[in-house]
Design a protein around this nucleic acid. Structure first.
Lengths: 290, 290
DNA sequence: ACTGTTTACGGAGACCGTAAGTATC
DNA sequence: GATACTTACGGTCTCCGTAAACAGT
């Protein structure tokens, strides 16, 4: 069981194809097939079903571990690689709902202090942001998710990154305007336990709950599209209260649930570069003020 | 950078010797030397200083990551290996201060339910207990440490193990009887910030604070010895209040610090065996009662 | 029939052990 | 000078690619 085999397993499980995984890793299909075979022999059980290619329960388990292992390997490499590197560009990944107005101001403040610094911002989902931060592709990740107040997001391993909380805000339920509960002043989740949901994993950040049954999944990152799905009756959605919800056909009701908030954090590698640290400091400063 | 190399690095860093690491890993010194050389070339910088053998800052960093990576590899292997295994023996690791009276009762209860079950209990330190739990050498680990109330111990990665809190209790400072502060009703840590400490890493569980300057380190697990060290003026110590402190020459003062408690947890692999789960259930039940 | 995974086989190269070399205590 | 790490070198075995066989769709 070596890292190379785990990489192959994860790639195959993600892509659902030996061929695609091989292309991604720079091997031939044959090599990947042999790596998987070796891994299955090493652990003494089948990890993938073929045709269609899909992980077995044991395979899922190992994929879960392997993903975290490989993430940490990337982090280790990035930390060692960036030692002594000079930085003329600051790359930032931000989740769509993790871009508070503070970001713009903090960036302006940062560029005034360091005019020569180039800044590149991308929006992605949290998983991608973590992977890119670990790989060293970006220097700062702004991620969000739903969790308990005061507790860090259970993103990846504790201690992999240095994380700073920027904001915690209440959640609102987004309902079709003609929904019977649309007029309420507040709702508990239990009132909607059997209702259909519109799940937007790339918008919601951390998956707070396992996907409810009968859910519509929206893979995009556009809030308006999500609202349209809600308005047309596909289900209800959950958003932080600061998102301006002004689409026709939807209503919002504050979520009454003491243990669930929307939380935004900024993540950097431990011992980040000076520019990355400066941005974190600026963001933290603004978070304290606002 | 493969797991084999990381194993070599960790073994050399721990033992401080290529020769000892090689013996431990089943290689020749030469092989380990080559593995380290390959690793240093891969990361592009020196990881160990030689004569004496000691990790460089970059090496320390990588050792930290590698330890967690290897721990998770062990966990993954154990989880996959135990699938379908039958268990006639339940092996338990317990830290010295994490053996509440409840353990004895829970074990009795367990053996009444499963008379054929053999139970083996060892006491170790937390790091060893985690490593053995990960390696599958033991089925249950009872660990303790100092942390914030209500929060899980920051032992290893979050989610590596399934953990259940058993107890949280206040801490007491143990002082020499003639210490000027020995008569107080309660003390804050700030009163002792510059005082000498007797640090007992194998008794204290998680290292709450970095080792203070001028500290005496006691590597054993015997409370009486620790108390004797305190009584003879080597410094102060911190213990959970349930430990009976009845040695001559020492005094105890409750610690007034809202964010520090002594916490005991029971850890098992996710999806533990039936016997391990039964013990966890029994312990949790008793914890709820008492 | 075609797409995609497995198996067969051969060559290049990684990896470890033996042994000689070298530096430090 | 002894201990301990490094380097040199050779053999073995792993590992990957090419190519053929095989299995679903």
């Amino acid at each position: 069981m070596e890292l190379r085999d785990l990489r192959a397993l994860v790639a195959v499980a993600r892509s659902g194809s030996f061929t695609a995984a091989a292309a991604e890793l720079g091997y031939t299909q044959s090599a990947v097939s042999q790596q998987i075979a070796a891994l299955e022999q090493a652990v003494g059980q089948q990890l993938l079903e073929r045709r269609p290619v899909r992980p077995t329960p044991a395979g899922r388990r190992l994929v879960e571990h392997a993903s975290r292992i490989l993430l940490r390997v990337d982090v280790a490499r990035s930390e060692l690689a960036r030692a002594g590197g000079v930085e003329g560009v600051l790359r930032v990944d931000a989740c769509p709902l993790a871009v508070p107005a503070a970001l713009a101001g903090s960036l302006r403040q940062l560029r005034q202090a360091q005019p020569a610094l180039r800044v590149v911002v991308h929006t992605t989902d949290a998983a991608t942001a973590l992977a890119e931060l670990a790989a060293g592709t970006v220097d700062v990740a702004l991620v969000d998710g739903i969790g308990a107040p005061g507790n860090p997001l259970a993103m990846a391993e504790a201690g992999l990154f240095s994380s700073t909380a920027l904001a915690e805000e209440r959640l609102v339920l987004v309902l079709p305007a003609d929904h019977p509960l649309a007029g309420r002043k507040g709702l508990d989740l239990s009132a909607l336990v059997d209702a259909p949901w519109v799940v937007a994993p790339r918008l919601a950040g951390g998956p707070a709950l396992p996907t409810p049954h009968g859910a519509v999944t929206y893979e995009g990152t556009d809030v308006v599209t999500l609202l349209n799905l809600v308005a047309s009756g596909h289900g209800t959605a959950l958003l932080p209260e600061s998102v301006p919800v002004t689409a026709a056909g939807v209503a919002t009701v504050p979520l009454r649930h003491p243990d669930l908030v929307h939380r935004t954090e900024v993540l950097v590698l431990r011992e980040p570069g000076v520019a990355a640290q400066a941005l974190v400091d600026a963001l933290r400063e603004r978070a304290r003020l606002g």
